[in-house]
Nucleic acid binder design. Structure first.
Lengths: 143, 143
DNA sequence: TACTACTATGATAATCATTTTCAATTGGAG
DNA sequence: CTCCAATTGAAAATGATTATCATAGTAGTA
C-alpha cells in the first residue's frame, strides 16, 4: 500500500502539472514510513536526518500536497499543532485520546456511522466527512 | 440560567481566591448574552462596544476562566481560531457543520453516546469528554 | 542536447492567534 | 483604612504557519 500511495501522489502531481523533485520524494518516503498522527515538526526532524538541507517550508508545502492528493489528512487535537495521518482510499476512522499520556487509539464503528447518517438526514445535511474524538484515560494510565 | 451560570462563575472565582472585577463582569455579560460558538475576537468586539478600554489579553484570560469554571467550553473547528460555547452542567452536544456556508447545527444523540461508551470500554478507556463533528452540506446549501 | 517556461526550493521575513511581561491599579480580608 | 496578592492594559514575545523572492531544477519540445 506504500506503493499505491506513492502512485496516487505521483498521479496527482502530474495531473496538476506539478513536478516531481528529490525533496518531495524524500519527504514522501519519510511520511509513508512513519507511524500515524505525525506533526509537521516530527516529520521535519525525520526529513532532516536524511537530508539536512531541506527547509521547514518545503515540509509544510509537501504535507499540504499530500492532503490535497488524498493520501493524508489533517487532524487537529486542540493543542496548537496540526498533525497528519495516513489516509487510504475511502477509509476513515476515529480516535480515543488519553488525556494523561497522550496515547492515541484508533477505532471504527459502523453502528455509530449509521447513526451519524440518520442524525444528519434528520437535519437535511449531506455528510461529507466527520470527526469523532473521545478523550479520557487509557487502560495503562488507569492502573 | 444566565443567573445560574453567573453564580457558578462567582462561586468558582471565590473558591479559587480570585477577584471579581468590573472587566470580568462586563465580559461575562457579553459572553452570556451571545449566541453559541463565539470566537475570542467576536467577544472582544462585543466587549469593546461596551467598554473600549478593555484589552484583548483580558478577554483571553476571562475566557480561559470561563472554561475552567465549567460555564464554557473551548471548541476547535480546524480554522486557526479557538471558539467558546456555553456549557450547562453536565450538558454536551455535537455539531453538524456546513462546509459551504459555515452554519453550525447542534444535536444530541443518546444512542451514539452509548455506543461511544461501549467502544471506549472495549479498549479499556474511561471517557471524560468527547467531540463529534459532522461536516457536510446543509439543507439550504443543497437547494 | 539545448531551449524554454514554469514550478520548486531554502532562507528569511511576515502574519496570525495567543501568551507573557511588567509596571501601575484595584479588590477585599482584616 | 491598609496591605498584599490578584488584575489590568499595552506592548513585546512566542509558536505555528505562510508568503516573498532570488536562485535552482524539472520536463516537455525542437
Amino acid at each position: 500500500m506504500k506503493r499505491a500511495k506513492k502512485k496516487q501522489f505521483h498521479d496527482f502531481i502530474s495531473a496538476k502539472g506539478l513536478k516531481s523533485t528529490r525533496q518531495r520524494e524524500i519527504i514522501l518516503d519519510c511520511f509513508l514510513s512513519s507511524d500515524r498522527h505525525l506533526s509537521t515538526e516530527d516529520l521535519y526532524m525525520k526529513v532532516r536526518a536524511k537530508n539536512p538541507s531541506i527547509g521547514y517550508a518545503t515540509v509544510y508545502r509537501s504535507l499540504k500536497l499530500f492532503a490535497e492528493s488524498g493520501i493524508a489528512r489533517e487532524i487537529h487535537f486542540g493543542d496548537g499543532q496540526t498533525r497528519y495521518e495516513h489516509l487510504s482510499e475511502g477509509e476513515h476512522h476515529d480516535h480515543l485520546i488519553c488525556t494523561r499520556c497522550g496515547a492515541v487509539q484508533e477505532f471504527k464503528n459502523e453502528a455509530i456511522e449509521r447513526l451519524q447518517q440518520e442524525v444528519a438526514e434528520h437535519f437535511g445535511f449531506k455528510v461529507e466527512t466527520h470527526k469523532m474524538e473521545l478523550y479520557g484515560v487509557c487502560s495503562k494510565c488507569r492502573k
